[in-house]
């Protein structure tokens, strides 16, 4: 299957009907944990595959950044879903989601330390040994930092990518959210990241609450995030951009407008 290309959207059962009717769509993502390893694929996804739409399994619970070794059963599941979908690559996060026997329920940030780099790289290497396709790693949005960072974000991410040979899944909304909540210049970060390693980029909406910008995936994509998409594409346009929406699904015409705005900001053809 060809790699991700153009404007895509995160496939979710709730919007399967909407996604099925996007005439120009060539690329979707599916949450890997939502697909049974033994199949079959959900009907809507199978139909997209028959149309030649690229499907990328996106894992959210592997916990690549955990100090412990990743669970081989979870890697096997991700590998099975990659086979089922005929995916050209899979993606996961530079984050941890559980520790000490407790599930956090979300992606948590790592300390930007040499020890954390080593832990992530060891787990990515373990995953790569079992996966049938390359993996792209996504830096997450977080509201807080660890107290004793040894590296800055660009150095931390670049070192992980170089040591593992992994691709980059850059989430533009995460770059925006982190700059808003944790400080730093988002353009300076773009200037220092290895943009040539980007397999595709994420874009999502968010909202202000309690003095923080929350990357909710349930609100509209704000203008500054679209502007940052433009800044990224002006530096080096990634092969594909994917809209993530995970709830409070708006009417179809609103979602189409969001996809069109993404196309306009990047110069890719509209898929609607």
């Amino acid at each position: 299957m060809t790699g991700p290309a153009g404007v895509g959207i995160g496939w979710r059962p709730e919007i399967a009907g909407f996604v099925a009717e996007l005439p120009g769509l060539r690329f979707v993502e599916v949450i890997a944990e939502s697909v049974p390893a033994t199949g079959p694929l959900p009907d809507g996804l199978a139909a997209l595959r028959e149309r030649g739409v690229t499907v990328v399994p996106h894992g959210v619970r592997l916990s690549l950044g955990g100090a412990e070794a990743i669970d081989p059963a979870r890697v096997a599941h991700l590998a099975a879903v990659a086979d089922l979908t005929g995916a050209p690559l899979v993606s996961e996060h530079i984050a941890f989601v559980r520790a000490g026997g407790l599930e956090a329920g979300h992606l948590l940030p790592l300390p930007r330390s040499r020890e954390a780099v080593a832990a992530v790289c060891a787990n990515v290497t373990r995953a790569q040994a079992e996966l049938p396709v390359p993996i792209a790693l996504e830096p997450i949005a977080a509201l807080f930092d660890w107290p004793d960072d040894e590296l800055d974000e660009a150095a931390f991410l670049t070192e992980i990518l170089e040591r593992t040979g992994a691709l980059l899944l850059l989430d533009v909304a995460n770059v925006y959210a982190n700059a808003r909540n944790r400080g730093g210049d988002p353009l300076a970060l773009l200037d220092r990241l290895p943009l040539e390693r980007i397999a595709y980029a994420h874009v999502a909406g968010g909202a202000e609450q309690g003095g923080f910008y929350h990357d909710t995936h349930t609100d509209p994509v704000p203008r500054p995030v679209l502007d940052l998409v433009g800044e990224l594409c002006a530096r080096r346009r990634p092969p594909a951009l994917l809209l993530e929406r995970d709830g409070h699904y708006p009417p179809a015409d609103v979602l189409r407008t969001e996809l069109d705005a993404l196309a306009a900001a990047s110069g890719f053809p509209a898929v609607t």
Binding site: R98, A99, G100, G101, L102, E103, A104, A116
Partner: peptide, 14 residues
Amino acid sequence: LAARQAALVAALVA
């Protein structure tokens, strides 16, 4: 790192 991650998760959810 393992103990520090566990302490953070415990503060967040427990």
